[in-house]
């Protein structure tokens, strides 16, 4: 699904990723853990295609090079990034936005665009699953949402867009335990043999609810250790300083 080889990235002449390698197969869930400033969010941004980075190395998604592909095209090809800080967009109605987005993705995949009614049906169903208040859908996109609501809205979008590769960037930060469970349930119920997940987190806590197949420790722009979920437990005990 995703193959990253020797990825280097810098912004404003500051090196952030220094030779990162990772390989994710369909159906796998990988967790990347690391201290603040280790380059976790940079990785998420680069995978989504955000501009402003100087990049070298190889980025392969479904066997194709991602380099020249724009942000929206990547999204249409099934890369989904759940933001650490979802952007507030005043004046844009959440439900209208979701429909526009879904139809863009569907169109790119050669599917029929959905009319307002059938779209509404899907949204209602998915938001009920996440225990979300439907009223949220008539509000402005992320505007005035609480931290938890914003994160739930990201997961809702993930469920609706049904992507192949999901990147969760610190989705657990700022969530109370109930919201965390809902988010985790949202992820778990979406897992299948074809979808891959890359879960970026600072704390081990989220991994109590979402069981990773592999855990990687990112430090100073490189993966310094990889293992299974036991590695996360170890990290919890020793802290990042204990790993070397």
């Amino acid at each position: 699904m995703l193959e990253i080889k020797n990825l280097n990235a810098s912004i404003n002449n500051k090196e952030i990723l220094k030779g990162l390698n990772i390989s994710i197969k369909p159906g796998e869930l990988h967790a990347i853990m690391g201290p603040n400033g280790s380059g976790k969010s940079t990785l998420a941004n680069i995978l989504s295609g955000k501009e402003g980075y100087k990049i070298s190395g190889e980025l392969m998604y479904q066997g194709k090079n991602l380099n020249e592909i724009s942000i929206d095209e990547r999204a249409q090809k099934g890369i989904f990034l759940a933001f650490q800080y979802p952007t507030e967009i005043p004046g844009v109605n959440t439900s209208n936005f979701l429909r526009t987005s879904l139809n863009k993705v569907r169109k790119a995949q050669g599917k029929k665009e959905l009319d307002a009614l059938s779209f509404l049906k899907i949204v209602k169903e998915k938001s009920n699953e996440l225990g979300m208040d439907e009223k949220m859908l008539s509000r402005q996109l992320n505007v005035g949402f609480s931290g938890g609501e914003k994160k739930k809205n990201e997961i809702l979008q993930m469920k609706i867009l049904d992507p192949n590769l999901v990147i969760l960037d610190e989705t657990d930060s700022g969530l109370d335990i109930d919201a965390l469970k809902i988010v985790a349930d949202g992820v778990n119920s979406s897992r299948n043999n074809e979808k891959s997940f890359l879960v970026i987190t600072h704390y081990q806590r989220l991994l109590n609810f979402i069981k990773p197949d592999f855990v990687h420790v990112l430090s100073d722009g490189k993966i310094i250790k990889s293992g299974t979920k036991e590695l996360a437990m170890e990290l919890e005990k020793t802290g990042y300083k204990g790993i070397n």
């Binding site: 724009s70 929206d72 967009i89 844009v92 936005f97 526009t100 987005s101």
Partner: peptide, 23 residues
């Protein structure tokens, strides 16, 4: 950027933002 990660083109994103701004 946020809108583009959801599959909208640059132009569509601008349009949506402008409409939202005025709406």
């Amino acid at each position: 950027y946020y809108l583009m990660t959801r599959g909208l083109s640059q132009k569509e994103s601008s349009k949506l933002l402008i409409n939202g701004f005025l709406n």
